[in-house]
Design a protein around this nucleic acid. Sequence first.
DNA 1: CGTACGATCTGCT
DNA 2: GCAGATCGTACGA
Length: 189
Amino acid sequence: MKLNREFYLRPDVVQIARDLLGKVLVTRMNGKITSAIITETEAYAGMTDRASHAFGGRRTARTEIMYRQGGTAYVYLCYGLHHLFNVVTNRQDVPHAVLVRAVQPIEGIELIRKRRKSKLPDHRLCAGPGTVSMGLGIQVKHTGLDLLGRQIWLEDEGVDPVQITKNPRIGVDYAGADALLPYRFTAML
DNA sequence: CGTACGATCTGCT
DNA sequence: GCAGATCGTACGA
C-alpha cells in the first residue's frame, strides 16, 4: 500500500524521518519498476534549521518545492553531479524535508546494478544519498513530483526496522550548532 | 555578471 | 586517507 497523504502531512519531520526506515521506495521509469527498503534518513527542519535549504524562510526557484504540501519529491543537484532525493513533509508553506541517505534494493536489482555500473554486493549498491537516486533512476527533473503519483512513491510493505540508531547529520558542518542535532536515523534489517 | 561552494562518490595511494 | 570530478545555485557587486 502506498503511504497516504496523512503520513506526510504530520508536523514532526524528525518523527517522519524515523518512520521512513523500513518503508519501500518505488520508482517506475519507462514502465520498469525498481524498489528498495529505506535504511537511512535525515530530517531537515525547515526555516529554523541552519542545515536546511529553507533556513530563515529562504524561498527560491529551487527550494520552492520544499514549500509544497507533504508527499512531494524534492530532488536537487549536489556537488555538481549527485541527484539527492528528499521527501517533503508537513503542510503547504512549511518547508520540512527528509533526505533518503541509503536503501537496500529488493525489486529490479539487475536494472539498479546497471544504472549504478557497480559490482558491489546488492546491499551496498545504494548506500549513500547520491547512489540511492542513481540506482532508482531519480533525477533533478523529477523534483516536484507527487509521491502519491505513478512514477515515484513509498509503500508500507517493507520490514520492521530494528536497532534504530540516531546520530548527527553528515556533511553539514556549515550549520553551526545545528550540525550536532541527532536528526540522522539508521536501521539494521 | 562573477564567484564560491556544496545534504557526495570513486579510485588511487 | 585524500584529491578530483563537475555545475547549478545563491548572493553580492
